[in-house]
Amino acid sequence: MTLNLPAGAITDAATISPLALFLQADIVVKGVMIGLLLASIWTWAIIIGFSFSLRKASQESRKFEADFWKAEDIDRFYESRGKAEFPAAKLMAAGVGEWRRSTAQRVIDRDGTRDRLSTAMSSAIAAEIDRLSDRLNILATVGSVAPFVGLFGTVWGIMRAFTSIAAEQNSSLAVVAPGIAEALFATAIGLFAAIPAVIAYNRFSHGINRLESSLTRFADGFYATLSRELEAQR
């Protein structure tokens, strides 16, 4: 018996050609495969973009922090480097801005200023972390759902294979094998999308946590400095 393979499909049984498997598949399985393929592409796009932005943020923040502690004058340092677009700079900008607004008044409420500084900097950290981890939920979703979607495609494809067995009254391997192979291909694509997504999610979560804690440390140090300055302010 011969399967009517579309032109271009490789009919050699020994070759696991994704194109041939895809072209043989049922329309539902095809949809599942296309969706999973897009999810995989999107996952990798996020992984690549995220690793760039996270590394850049971490490196810039570390460097900024190191430079900050070496700086003689906070105001001058802020004027020269505080306008940059990375978390530590944003944090510093939030702290310095709040400081300037609080100390501009004639009577300085020290406790109120400390509270506002603390709140402003922690909210700046939270905003930066939120912005950075915006895409992480997509990785989490793909990592957890893609295997199930692939499994759905497999189940559907195997159901179809059984239907063809019933229709042909023939349970030979030649009838069963192509359907099951194309069905399993859906699960393969699902896992292909899910595994990198899960790995990247865990790794990026860890990176975000590290960045957050380092930002928090920097914010604490900066807060302590500002608090001391507030003591000295008369």
Binding site: I41, W42, W44, A45, I46, I47, I48, G49, F52
Partner: peptide, 11 residues
């Protein structure tokens, strides 16, 4: 920009 690069590379 990073995301665009990532999308292109992934595709």
């Amino acid at each position: 920009r990073a995301e665009k690069i990532g999308l292109g590379v992934a595709t």
